[in-house]
Amino acid sequence: MFAADSHEFYAGNTFPGLYASMMTRYLHDYGDQNGKCRETLAQIACKNHHHALSNQYAQFRRAITIDDVLNSPKVADPIRLLHCSPISDGAAAIILTRPELARRYTDTPIYIVGSQQATNDISLYSRNSLTEITTTTITVKNALNEANLTMDNVQLVEVHDCFTIEELLFLEDSGCFKKGKGWESIHESYSSFKGAKHIPFLCKGKELIVNSGGGLKADGHPVGATGIRQIVECFTQLVGKAGDHQVELDGELNTALTHNIGGTGAIANVHVLTKHLR
């Protein structure tokens, strides 16, 4: 797959290669000597495959292990095949209308309370940091402000996990975890997982479900349809119609956030969805 910036492309880089450079820098700046950070980036893939097991629409409904990820073919060191999402065929559709009209068409409308987009340099090398997707930081902040919410209110996120490093970066750039510390929390959450259908991450003392249907990694990545697919996933979860992979929380599921990016974060779209308007 090509790199979008022509200088990156003509220097021999590829799209997975660019994310691999982000992962390299992350491992250098924040990783540990014991390989736990690398293990975490494999755990993210395993978690998303686990979430896909009960999703009837998922492309990969099979469990994978950390060893499977770490021994899969090399794509762009340090990224291996099972760190990558596939490129899928598929389509997704939603019907949009104004909130005051929504109940004419459904008894269970889901409200878009935040919708933000941001752009940045298309070239990775032009950015100030290789371990932060600035467009994610900006869009999440602005969308939550627009919704008058914080990440603490968000119970479910659909993250653009085209590569597992991207899911980790989102969780830090969105403020769920401190920069460079996210992998430690994820590692702990994954390691203490006891066998439920979803593996929540413990974020600031509360559980956060990430990519409930398997994300791009296991649900699939039909590129242009992915953003809508994420909305559909959150919609079905919020209305309680996700079937076998319905998220089960202690309280009511009310707020979800979707995060869809282009390239290596040159553009990001974030939507905040709620079941009930406040």
Binding site: G17, M22, D77, L130
Partner: peptide, 13 residues
């Protein structure tokens, strides 16, 4: 600043 090893080069490479 950072690097990666492309294992599946594009046609040009």
């Amino acid at each position: 600043v950072s690097a990666n090893i492309v294992r599946r080069p594009t046609n040009n490479f």
